[in-house]
Simulated assay, not measured.
Amino acid sequence: MSESAVNGGAIDWERSKSEDEEDDYDDDEEDYSSPTQSSPRPPSSTIFEKDRHLLYLQMMYELLPYHYQSQEINRLTLAHFIISGLHFLGARDRVDKDVVASWILSFQALPRNIVSLKDGEFYGFFGSRSSQFPRDENGDLTHNSSNLASTYCALAILKVIGHDLSTIESESLLISMKNLQQDDGSFMPVHTGGEMDLRFVYCAAAICYMLNNWSGMDKEMAKSYILNCQSYDGGFGLIPGSESHGGATYCAVASLRLMGFIGDDLLSNHSGSSIIDPSLLLNWCLQRQANDGGFQGRTNKPSDTCYAFWIGAVLKLIGGYTFIDKIALRKFLLNCQSKYGGFSKFPGQLPDLYHSYYGYTAFSLLEEPGLSPLCPELGLPLLAVSGI
Rank of each mutant, 00 (worst) to 15 (best):
D93H: 15
R75C: 03
L105T: 01
R52N: 09
F133K: 15
F81H: 06
D93K: 15
Y152V: 10
T142A: 10
L86W: 01
N144D: 13
S145V: 04
I73Q: 02
I157P: 00
A79Q: 11
F88E: 00
D119K: 10
N113R: 03
L165G: 07
L76P: 01
A156F: 04
L78S: 05
Q58M: 05
T46E: 14
P42K: 05
L158T: 09
L105Q: 06
L148I: 07
E171L: 08
D119N: 15
A109L: 05
K118T: 14
H87E: 15
N147K: 05
R129P: 01
Q132G: 07
N144Q: 11
K97V: 10
H87N: 14
H143N: 13
F88K: 02
N144T: 12
S116A: 12
S170M: 10
H80Y: 11
R75I: 06
F107Y: 07
P42A: 05
N144S: 15
A101R: 06
H163R: 03
D96C: 08
K50R: 15
S150K: 11
W103E: 03
P43L: 07
A109R: 04
S106H: 11
G85T: 10
E171V: 10
D98F: 03
G90Y: 04
G139D: 12
E49Y: 00
Q71T: 03
W103Y: 13
A156T: 09
D93Q: 14
A79M: 14
S150C: 13
A101S: 14
V95E: 00
S128F: 05
S102W: 01
S128T: 06
F107E: 08
Y123H: 11
M60Q: 07
L64K: 04
L78P: 04
S116F: 00
N147P: 01
A154M: 09
Y123N: 00
G124A: 09
R129D: 10
G90V: 10
L141D: 07
D93N: 15
D51A: 15
Y56Q: 04
A156L: 09
D96K: 05
A154K: 04
R135T: 10
L148T: 11
A109T: 02
V115W: 04
I83K: 03
L89Y: 02
C153V: 08
E137Y: 00
Y123V: 00
L165Y: 02
Y66N: 13
Q58R: 11
A79T: 01
L148N: 06
L89P: 10
R75S: 08
W103S: 00
G90Q: 08
S70L: 08
S170N: 06
Q71E: 15
S102R: 14
I83Y: 01
I47W: 04
V100P: 02
R112W: 06
K118I: 06
S128I: 00
L148K: 02
